[in-house]
Design a protein around this nucleic acid. Structure first.
Length: 588
RNA sequence: GUCCUCGUAGCUCAACGGAUAGAGCGUUGGCCUCCGGAGCCAAAGGUUAGAGGUUCGAAUCCUCUCGGGGACGCCA
């Protein structure tokens, strides 16, 4: 079903256009800023009146005369300087709830009318290093965006642009050859238990030993030239690294695996040609020995043009080159018509220049949209980027383990009678859910302070609160049998509703807004719109739960209330589970 | 120095150019013979950093100032 707000916008805009004789007059329907103003408000009349130099209230009168919303709203009211306030009819709410109920797979939300091929670039850890807290936001934000886009009906191509092809590999390969010479014959026999330590050791040797440094450089050359022995070891390092980061994705319940990987190495043999092409087009020129593109509008310190360096003075390529190659590949071969990059805000300039350069080169057709979805930093309690006490990056694995452990303690305290497996499962859902939810519920552009205590709190806008709301509905369902209530038969074929209590209506009005909120969240790539909606839903459900008995309700009210419970549970499960990748549990 | 970004209640944060700027935490006061009190209801708390401007209307857009964070030629 189409969101009510869109239906209203369309219908009122049409009337406003005809009354004002201005074809592009927009109704500007928004959700009401205050319940006293009804459910939706029309803001566009005042702007239109201004253009016509007429009285806005009088114009609003005319619009209302022409407008027929009787199937949706009660009589519209004019208020203030020229707002039109709209209140949905209970009959309309009932009709919509039944529609949602009938849609068992898609919670009453239409697929997009214009499906696209969307490439989403996210997570992107460096191989040969542990994933740390800095990868958290890109990974889960990207995953949520993919889930939502997919739900909307787009074709989503997840791309994990892993860092598997840098000069650091020379040193890692050289180090493995020295410390585990058997790797040359049998790469599989060497297991890297601690990636971080491995990297540090190699780096230390490289810094201390000139001969080793020379070997490292030679291995870089070998790698680029495709030397089979070096390549084998490199491949092994990549495989070993995957053993470390795949479990993190699994724990996070993020849909990423080897199939989504297309790392820097994939583009390695395209770079030289790409730079040649840029040179040929007169875009890349030499500056201080490096090959640079100078896209218009980018200036540096002294007002000099800012370079986008595509080849270093020593001939090596760098991330700008790889990113260009990836962009080109995604358009030419993946046939993307929308590419979304999910990285932290510090890379903003880089992506602006990347997009500008690609456009200059003529690689971006008109219909292709490029977006950089930025986010802020995860901070510690000291308001500095989150680190361990000794100043190191916090490993994502450790962070998640702690969250689960803390959740486990709470479950143990609240529900000791549950069996062990159940407790373990709940602790996982709650702990991981808390970390993800805490991230999603903040505006992605701002930094946020990471706090286990806050994200695991049972009060407030947190995952546990949401999961609790869900578990409470499920508890009602479990209790039903004991009270001789057959939910199945009361809900099957339900054709009319009896919405009368304020708390019922309030909950109903909120439930039907789900599709509108998803659209809003996606238009701006902002999951916090979704968490806010879900939180409000849980609050409204609690209000309803307190005010309206369900199982003990009379025959007039009970089916309606059972349906409200069911739709609330389905919406929470969908929003949390399907769109945000946060598991709900029946009991907690 | 240039550019980007942020500055909203004691704290953490919302607010899609709209009406009297909203939540949560914390504080204060209510609500358990009742479907999970891990809850609900209510109160107090604000010159939206400051100054101009645009607009019928500005936390939101523009300009400047102050303050935090970030980026700015061979790292990603």
């Amino acid at each position: 079903m189409k969101p009510v707000i869109d239906v209203l916008e369309q219908r009122i805009s049409r009337v406003l256009s005809s009354v004002t004789e201005q074809p592009d007059a927009a109704a500007l329907v928004k959700t009401a800023t205050d319940p006293r103003f009804g459910d939706y408000q029309v803001n566009g009349v005042m702007a239109a009146a201004k253009r016509l130099k007429t009285n806005p209230r009088q114009l609003a009168e005319k619009v209302i005369e022409e407008l027929d919303l009787s199937d949706i709203c009660q009589t519209p009211e004019i208020a203030g300087p020229g707002f039109i306030n709209l209140r949905l009819k209970p009959e309309y709410l009932a009709e919509k709830l039944l529609e949602i109920n009938a849609d068992t797979t898609h919670v009453g939300i239409d697929k997009t009318g214009g499906p696209k091929r969307m490439v989403v670039d996210f997570s992107c850890p460096n191989i040969a290093k542990q994933m740390h807290v800095g990868h958290l936001r890109s990974t889960i934000l990207g995953d949520a965006l993919c889930r939502i886009l997919q739900f909307e009906g787009h074709t989503v191509i997840r791309q994990n642009h892993i860092g598997d092809w840098g000069t650091q590999f020379g040193m890692l390969i050289a180090y493995l050859k020295q410390t585990s010479p058997e790797i040359i014959e049998r790469p599989d026999s060497v297991h890297i238990a601690d990636l971080e330590q491995f990297y540090r050791n190699a780096k230390a040797r490289c810094d201390a030993d000139r001969d080793f440094a020379a070997l490292s450089r030679q291995e870089v050359v070998n790698l680029h030239e495709g030397n089979p022995e070096t390549l084998n070891i490199w491949r092994h390092i990549v495989d070993e690294s995957r053993e470390h980061y795949q479990p993190v994705y699994d724990t996070l319940e993020v849909n990423l695996n080897q199939d989504n990987e297309r790392g820097e190495s994939f583009y390695a043999d395209r770079l030289a040609g790409l730079v040649e092409e840029l040179k040929g087009k007169g875009l890349a020129v030499e500056s201080d020995g490096a090959m640079c593109v100078f896209p218009e509008g980018f200036v540096s310190k002294e007002g000099q043009p800012l370079p986008f360096i595509v080849q270093k003075s020593d001939g090596a390529f760098l991330y700008a080159t790889t990113d260009l190659a990836a962009l080109k590949f995604r358009i030419d071969e993946l046939k993307a018509d929308h590419i979304v990059y999910v990285t932290d805000a510090r890379q903003k300039l880089h992506f602006e220049m990347l997009f500008a350069t690609a456009r200059l080169a003529g690689w971006v057709p008109e219909h292709v949209a490029l977006a950089h979805v930025t986010f802020g930093t995860v901070l510690g309690e000291d308001n500095r980027p989150l680190k361990t006490r000794s100043g190191e990056n916090i490993k994502l694995r450790d962070l998640l383990n702690e969250a689960v452990q803390r959740a486990r303690t709470v479950v143990e305290e609240k529900n000791p009678q549950l069996d062990e497996d159940r407790k373990t499962d709940i602790a996982r859902a709650v702990g991981i859910g808390a970390v993800k939810y805490a991230d999603y519920c903040n505006n992605r552009t701002s930094d946020y302070v990471f706090s286990f205590d806050k994200m695991l709190a049972m009060d407030g806008n947190t995952a546990p609160y949401m999961q609790y709301a869900y578990a409470r509905v499920k508890s009602i369902e479990r209790k039903a049998a004991g009270k001789d209530v057959d939910i199945q038969s009361e809900l099957s074929g339900i054709a009319t509703l009896n919405l009368t209590e304020p708390a019922e209506l309030d909950l109903a009005r909120h439930l039907i807004r789900y599709g509108e909120v998803i659209a809003n969240a996606m238009a701006d790539y902002r999951p916090n719109y979704l968490t806010t909606f879900l939180y409000e839903l849980a609050q409204k459900f609690s209000g309803f739960y307190n005010a309206c008995p369900v199982l003990d309700a009379n025959a007039q009210s009970r089916p309606t209330r059972l349906l409200l419970c069911d739709l609330t549970a389905r919406t929470i499960a969908h929003g949390l589970g399907e769109l945000l990748g946060i598991r709900v549990v029946e009991q907690m």
